[in-house]
Amino acid sequence: MPPSSPAEELTVLRPSRGWLDLNLREVWRYRELVYFLTWRDIKVRYKQTFLGAAWAIIQPFFTMVVFTLFFGRLAKVPSDNVPYPIFSYAALLPWQLFSKALSQAGRSLVSSRSIITKVYFPRLIIPLATLFGGLVDFFIAFVVLLGMMAYYHVALLPRIWTLLPFLLLALATALGVGLWLSALNVLYRDVGYTLPFLTQFWMFITPIAYSSTLVPPKWRLVYALNPMAGVVDGFRWALLGTPTGPGPSLWVSTAVAVLVLISGLYFFRRMERQFADRV
């Protein structure tokens, strides 16, 4: 039921064929539902846990500690002249956002089966809400980053505002991939089994434990086909001033992210009509 549609609006329900328009206006009408589902996810996530919202910090923080010990201290991975802890933590922030969105969005439709088979609303809202839910964890973990920067005497750079576009790039990538996976997961539950492997694999091709400056120059553009590489490079450049600033690589990353997002939206929309029958 479109909450703000005029009372006398005529809706025609008929079998849809082929590729549909994205119907984003309908999603906008349901924006309050996005808010409520996001709010539910956040509210429920840490209920009946002992540490509560601290979990949002614990995960990236301890990953950072392990990385610092093994990659920073033992393997002596170069970190662009930035203290290794903060070097890896700055990358783990967008990475955690991305990987959580991936795994949660991927499963979101299937776990919302009871709603999908009973009530109508644009289904896009479900993966969208899980994405926004992850954003809250991101901001909590970001506060810790600011603390670490103070501790290591890393000054804030004027270019810190560029974090926003890099964050958007991360969200676009996460949503795009999440849409593909969530729709596929309704049809083929294989996706559920692929997710942990996919996230792990993706982590290795993203410069989190290491710096993208280690990649040979002639491979840089290929490497940038992974939009998360662009995001992580951007985060380090904006926060820590590493020499991984915007260049041709970033445009490649952005183009791929946009492509994944748009194709994801269309694919999701095309599959949407089968969700209630197949989920």
Binding site: M1, S5, E8, L10, V12, L13, Y120
Partner: peptide, 8 residues
């Protein structure tokens, strides 16, 4: 097809 006038 089904035609519907108003919110359902």
């Amino acid at each position: 097809y089904a035609e519907i006038r108003g919110r359902v």
